[in-house]
């Protein structure tokens, strides 16, 4: 990325994709908070109870469990996809490697050991466990974020579940008790199923459909049978 003949672009252009999605994340999170508090207030009104303020709602477990249950499923999706695409292929899909290239590939393919270059990241030159961890860092971070966000959805779901039970004059449940509740598993599965379908359909649709100019697609003129070409 530091080649002397590369044109230099400004910060905004260099990071346009990440910044755009970061901005869209904040806007849609705001939308979730606004529509969420409106929904809560409609229920409060129907039950003859007082209104809840936006700040109170944004600092409640009921809001955070809805955020975390969606985050966890996204990180589960990426964690599974990053690891599955090492070992499994889909013939003809730009999302996949060529059949026959399953596995972690050679040091030469991966520019490791004596195939490393001066520009290779630090951990590549370090060797040993540091290189081994760095070689799996994308999947490991996605997996760790899945576990953390899933745990966060469990504890916020537990707090929200208990505050609802208290409102109905029922005894609160323990955290372990909540992990056996249908509420927790329904929140998890309803998000997981959509992620699995989305990943599966992107993988197979990328065989037969094209998006000119997108690295998520093969070049428009490439044959359906060609795998792993992006354009």
């Amino acid at each position: 990325m530091s080649g002397v003949d590369e044109p230099t672009y400004g910060f905004l252009r260099n990071n346009a994709l990440s910044l755009t999605f970061g901005g869209l994340f904040l806007i849609t999170l705001g939308g979730q908070a606004l529509s969420g508090v409106a929904q809560v207030n409609a229920e409060q009104e129907a039950n003859g109870l007082g209104r809840v303020g936006l700040l109170d709602y944004a600092t409640s477990s009921s809001f955070l469990v809805d955020v975390m249950e969606n985050w966890q499923s996204e990180y589960l999706q990426f964690f599974l996809y990053v690891f599955a695409t090492v070992w499994l292929v889909q013939k003809g899909s730009s999302e996949s490697k060529e059949p026959g290239k399953e596995g972690t590939e050679s040091d030469r393919d991966q520019q490791l050991g004596r195939h490393a270059s001066a520009g290779s990241p630090g951990p590549v030159h370090a060797g040993g466990w540091l290189t081994a961890v760095f070689s799996r860092s994308l999947g490991l971070v996605m997996g760790a974020l899945f576990l953390l966000t899933w745990a966060a959805s469990a504890v916020t779901g537990w707090a929200a579940f208990n505050s609802e039970r208290l409102g109905q004059r029922q005894d609160p449940v323990t955290l372990v008790g909540y992990l056996g509740e249908a509420d927790f598993w329904n929140r998890s599965f309803q998000n997981w199923q959509s992620e699995m379908l989305a990943v599966g359909s992107l993988t197979i649709f990328a065989v037969y459909l094209r998006q000119r100019g997108s690295p998520e697609s093969k070049p428009v003129g490439v044959a359906h049978a060609d795998t792993g070409q992006t354009g």
């Binding site: 990440s18 985050w71 966060a152 916020t156």
Partner: peptide, 30 residues
């Protein structure tokens, strides 16, 4: 690559802060 690294670190920080915030709210029983 300094700007790119900054965006990467901001993403990581936002995600970890969100997770931390969720744990704090749950611990407070809110």
């Amino acid at each position: 690559m300094k700007g790119v690294r900054a965006v990467y670190l901001v993403y990581l920080a936002v995600i970890l802060l969100g997770i931390g915030y969720a744990f704090v709210l749950a611990a407070m029983g809110r």
